[in-house]
Each structure stands twice: as structure tokens, then as C-alpha cells.
Design a protein around this nucleic acid. Structure first.
Length: 585
DNA sequence: GCCGTTTTCGGCCCGACTGTTTTCAGTCG
């Protein structure tokens, strides 16, 4: 029973409560609690032993008891009780776009429909059109929704969506009728995966912008089209919503559509207490009768937050994870910037499984404005990736030395560090000898095998590597692949504690499929005093551009420049490696 | 079910769009 199991039960309970038409605020409480737990880096059981479950925002006495029951017994009586009241497949119908709790309850009670298959059959047979509030068009819409549901994939990688978002923004900006254009939503918050893409534009002629939008090459099909909002399906299979507002509302709309929903709700509750009301057009005073009164802000986001007595909160932090309280107290972190990055420390060359020679990777790094980089090809055991035998490792060192000599001759201060991504073997030992590792400028280590080990064994292997004193950075610590594979079972808190104690940096792997550590783990690591290293793991020169995803993930984990070793000048990094090897080697 | 610089009770964010309606409910974000 880990955190994600608890999240699932809480969410399911909320679904059931909605179908059973229970109090909407009770539903909201379960949703909020689920969201809160989802954002936790620590295990619930460890929080329970420490601060107590009620220290988690949105969890009060009742839910703390129910979660404790879940942790102890693997079941929640209340959840079981609700589940027994509806057929098994009913909640799944909520996953069909266009089907909400009311319609699910309606088709169940009036037509005895218990799952998506039966819903489809009934819609095809025209058996739903006589129900209250439904018609032939509703049936059509439901069938279309089932089609989308069957296509699966509820979210896409940020790395797949962001380039499309930038292209759409670019195209709309070219129109003379648009004033401002921006993407918003989870894409702007740089969440690791994205559901729908939100795009916002300001214009005095919304209809022209809408029309141009509908004709964009990335768009496959229009889903709905109103005066200020158009929804469409992108070629990449995601929905995109365009909203057009007047320029004086740009800030309010951008704030609103950037979300997250939880952040917005918290902000609006705050506004209420200040006698203000916020919508996507403006911040306004609340009149005595509770109406929207005099407008006080809306043109820029800064203005909107200022009206609520807050500094601008960076989009990456807007998850209702304490950022409003921090902003109020003037304690928002000065987040790391992409421009702070001086080097990339994990990349592969054609010596192992990379596609490009070292010199080409160096050229690309220089073009990005970096001051140095590290080549970190795979070690000998990883034969599928052409891992380097000790002899080839030594030969590669010669090539790196020669390249650095050439750079020096041409007056360049750019340098290439010799590194490796050494495998942590199944017994926790390292794939090169101590002497071989000591000859490298910096040592990265990864788990690439034995993923079927249990949690204790995986954790112990990683701990053995961390405490060996011979590695400087632990790479992609959980091994997850987004939308494809969960991380291997590992006690991340124990890893973080050990990394803090032995001054080993933990990597944020910037590859869009990884982003590992994730945002919440970054935050926990930083709180415990662990250094972070952000690297692209590039296997081609073009991959070096993934750095922005790693930086965004670190920002979502509240990282400042000082937390990240890639912001250091080369001498500082080398001093750190020397010093930590003296202390722990 | 949660929560508290008006409250331990009585609040709890806000609007666009659709389809089915004669003024609104449901869904979505």
C-alpha cells in the first residue's frame, strides 16, 4: 500500500460519491486529499510516524483515520461500502469524455447500463435519446467519446507537446489581428505530462483569430467552436483549447488558464476573504450584495497577483503546494534559470551507444553557451550499449586530452571532462575498479539491471554505491519511464538521506521520458541538503536541448541556482569532486 | 469532509459551451 494506491482509493471514493449524488463539497474534499497525497515525496507511513497525517493540507481528522485504516489493513471500509452500492464497471464510464456523474447515474438507473460496452450498445441502438436531458446528438457525442476513450492515452509527454505549443503560438503571433499569444495550462507549468493544451490570445477581432486557428496545420479536427473558445484535436492526438480575450484581460486570463485548478481555487478563496473576486477577465471588488464590482486588475499577471497582495508566483510552482503561503511571507525561492547552467555532465558519444563523435557533442555544447561538459559513456557490463572495456576507456581519455589541447591552442576556454556512467552491478559493486574510477574527472553511476529485485535489494544496491565514496552523481535514481514504466521499487527517502550524508549529487535526468528525479523528489532532496545535477543523457547532439525540461523539473522542485552543481564554474566542480573523494573515498 | 486575521459552524471558485430546454443542467477545465 504505497502513496499511489491511497491516491487511487481516494479518487475512486470521490467518483463513487459523485455518482451517488452525495454532497459536492464532500467530493471536493476527497479530490483535494487525493491531489495532496499525489504531491507528496515522502511515504504516507513515514509522515504518519513523524508529523502525523493531519499535517497534510486537506486531510483532517476523518480522512486521517480512513487513510490510517488503509495503511494498516489495505482496505477502507467507507470505500468498500460505497463500492458495494454500484456495479463494478460504473466508475469507468466517467473516463468517457462527455460522461459525467449525472449521466452515468442516469443511464444506470433508467436503462440498467453497467459499463462502457453496454453504454456503447445502447447509444448505437438509440436507446438513450428518450432519457431526460438527452437526445440523438447526445448519443452521437457519447459514441465519439467512447472512441476517444478506447484510443487510451490520457496524457502525453511534455517533450511532445511543448514544441507543438510553441509552433501554434508562433503561427498565431504572425496574424496582424493578435496582440498577445501564449500557451498556458500544464504546459506552461512544465508538468512532466500534459492532458490538454491551452492557448490564449488577445485580440479585438476574436473571430478572425479563431478562424485562422482552425486552419492551422497541426489541427486534425474541430471539437467545438464558440465566440471566445475553440476546442480541436491535434495531430499528436491531444486536445487543444484556444481562448481569445480582450487585451485588458490578458493577465487575468493567463493566470486563470495556467492553473493549476487547485492553485486557482486557493487564490480565489484568498480573494474572497479580501473582498475581491477573480475570474478570467479581471480581479474586481465584491459589492455588498456579493456582485462583481469595480475592476482592480487584469492586464498583466503581476497586476493580478499584486491585487491579491502577492508577488508573481512562477508558473512551475502553481500547484497549491505551499507557494501561496511562501509568496505571502516573501519566501518564494529565487528559482534556477536555464541561463544559469554552465555544463551538461551526462552524454554519450559514438564510443558507446551515442550517435555522434565527442568533438561534435562539444561543438553543440559550445553553441549552447556552456563552459564545459562531461562525456559519460557506458561501462563494460552494459554490452547492449557497447559499454567501454578498461582499454577503450583509457583510449577515450587520450582522445579527450587531445581535444582539450586543441581547444586550448585555439584560445577556447571550453573543456571536456572525462567521465562515465558506471553500472551498479547486481551485488551493488561498481563496474570499474577504484583505480579506473579515480582516473576520471567525475563519476556518474546508474542502475541498469536487476529491476526485478525487491525494494530492499534495489535500495541496498544504490546505497552501497552512494556510500562507496567512488561515485559523485547517482543518475536517474528511480529508473522510471514516463507513460511506459514505473520506477523500480526503491526507498527514495533512504537514498536521499545517504546522498546527503555522503555528499553525492542526485541527478535530474532531463530526457523527456525520464525527468527522474521528479519534481517532488527534488524538493525533498533539497530540503535534506542534497545537491542536484541536471543532465540531458544526450545520445545525439540534438538531445542536448532537453536541458530545459530538466531545469523546469528542478524549478518545480523549488530548486535555486545554489542547489544545482551544473551552475558551478569548472574549477568549483573539480574542487568539490576532489574534496568529496578525500572525505569519503 | 475541511477549515478559521470576521467563523469550532457555515461557509466552500468561476465561466464557456452544448444540447435540450423555454430558463437550465451537465460537463469541462
Amino acid at each position: 500500500m504505497d502513496n499511489s494506491d491511497v491516491v487511487r482509493i481516494l479518487d475512486q471514493t470521490a467518483d463513487l460519491l459523485e455518482i451517488l449524488d452525495e454532497d459536492v463539497f464532500k467530493v471536493r474534499s476527497y479530490r483535494r486529499a487525493a491531489e495532496s497525497v499525489r504531491g507528496l515525496a515522502q511515504d504516507l507511513s513515514s509522515i504518519r510516524e513523524g508529523e502525523g497525517l493531519q499535517s497534510i493540507p486537506g486531510i483532517g481528522k476523518s480522512l486521517a483515520g480512513k487513510i490510517a485504516e488503509l495503511l494498516d489493513t489495505g482496505r477502507m471500509g467507507y470505500h468498500e461500502e460505497l463500492k458495494a452500492q454500484v456495479p463494478e464497471g460504473l466508475p469507468t464510464m466517467l473516463r468517457v469524455p462527455g460522461m459525467g456523474p449525472k449521466k452515468v447515474a442516469l443511464v444506470w438507473k433508467e436503462r440498467g447500463i453497467r459499463d462502457v460496452d453496454e453504454l456503447e450498445a445502447a447509444a448505437q441502438a438509440g436507446e438513450l435519446r428518450d432519457l431526460k436531458g438527452m437526445g440523438a446528438k447526445t448519443e452521437e457525442k457519447i459514441l465519439k467519446g467512447i472512441g476517444l476513450y478506447r484510443q487510451g492515452a490520457e496524457r502525453a509527454l511534455l517533450g511532445d507537446v511543448l514544441p507543438v505549443a510553441e509552433r501554434i503560438v508562433e503561427e498565431l503571433r504572425r496574424l496582424p489581428e493578435t496582440i498577445e499569444v501564449a500557451y498556458a495550462g500544464s504546459t506552461r507549468r512544465m508538468k512532466e505530462t500534459v492532458g490538454d493544451l491551452d492557448v490564449l490570445a488577445t485580440s479585438q477581432a476574436p473571430e478572425v483569430v479563431m478562424e485562422a486557428f482552425r486552419a492551422l496545420p497541426d489541427i486534425r479536427e474541430i471539437i467545438l467552436a464558440g465566440d471566445t473558445k475553440t476546442s480541436a484535436l491535434l495531430d499528436i492526438g491531444r486536445q487543444v483549447d484556444l481562448r481569445v480575450v480582450l487585451p485588458e484581460s490578458f493577465g487575468a486570463a493567463l493566470q486563470y488558464f495556467t492553473g493549476s485548478q487547485a492553485h486557482n481555487i486557493a487564490l480565489r478563496e484568498r480573494a474572497r476573504k479580501m473582498g475581491l473576486t477573480v475570474n478570467e477577465y479581471a480581479v474586481s471588488k465584491l459589492t455588498e450584495s456579493g456582485e462583481e464590482g469595480e475592476r482592480v486588475a487584469g492586464a498583466t499577471e503581476e497586476e493580478v497577483y499584486a491585487a491579491l497582495g502577492l508577488p508573481l508566483i512562477p508558473p512551475e510552482l502553481r500547484e497549491d503546494h505551499g507557494e501561496i503561503r511562501a509568496a505571502e511571507a516573501g519566501e518564494l525561492p529565487a528559482l534556477l534559470e536555464l541561463a544559469d547552467i554552465r555544463c551538461d555532465l551526462q552524454m554519450h558519444s559514438e564510443w558507446s551507444d551515442g550517435s555522434h563523435p565527442i568533438a561534435q557533442m562539444a561543438e553543440a555544447c559550445m553553441a549552447l553557451g556552456y563552459e564545459y561538459m562531461a562525456i559519460s559513456d557506458h561501462s563494460q557490463s552494459l554490452q547492449v550499449a557497447r559499454g567501454l572495456q578498461p582499454g577503450r576507456l583509457a583510449a577515450q581519455r587520450v582522445e579527450i586530452d587531445e581535444l582539450n589541447a586543441t581547444l586550448a591552442d585555439t584560445g577556447s576556454s571550453f573543456r571536456v571532462l572525462a567521465s562515465c556512467e558506471v553500472d551498479i552491478l547486481s551485488d551493488g559493486s561498481l563496474d570499474y575498479t577504484a583505480e579506473q574510477l579515480a582516473g576520471l574527472d567525475i563519476v556518474l553511476a546508474s542502475l541498469h539491471q536487476g529491476f526485478t529485485d525487491d525494494r530492499a535489494r534495489m535500495t541496498n544496491r544504490a546505497l552501497k554505491a552512494i556510500t562507496s565514496g567512488r561515485i559523485d552523481v547517482l543518475c536517474h535514481p528511480t529508473g522510471r519511464l514516463l507513460l511506459a514504466r514505473e520506477g523500480y521499487p526503491i526507498d527514495i527517502e533512504a537514498i536521499i538521506e545517504a546522498a546527503a550524508e555522503h555528499d553525492v549529487a542526485l541527478e535530474v535526468n532531463a530526457f523527456p521520458e525520464r525527468l527522474d528525479l521528479c519534481d517532488t523528489h527534488v524538493r525533498l532532496a533539497i530540503e535534506r541538503g542534497v545537491k542536484i545535477s541536471i543532465n540531458t543523457d544526450a545520445h545525439r547532439a540534438e538531445h542536448l536541448g532537453f536541458m530545459r525540461y530538466g531545469v523546469a523539473t528542478a524549478r518545480r522542485g523549488w530548486a535555486t541556482r545554489d542547489d544545482v552543481i551544473n551552475t558551478w564554474p569548472r574549477e568549483t566542480l573539480m574542487d568539490w569532486v576532489r574534496s568529496r573523494r578525500e572525505r569519503f573515498g
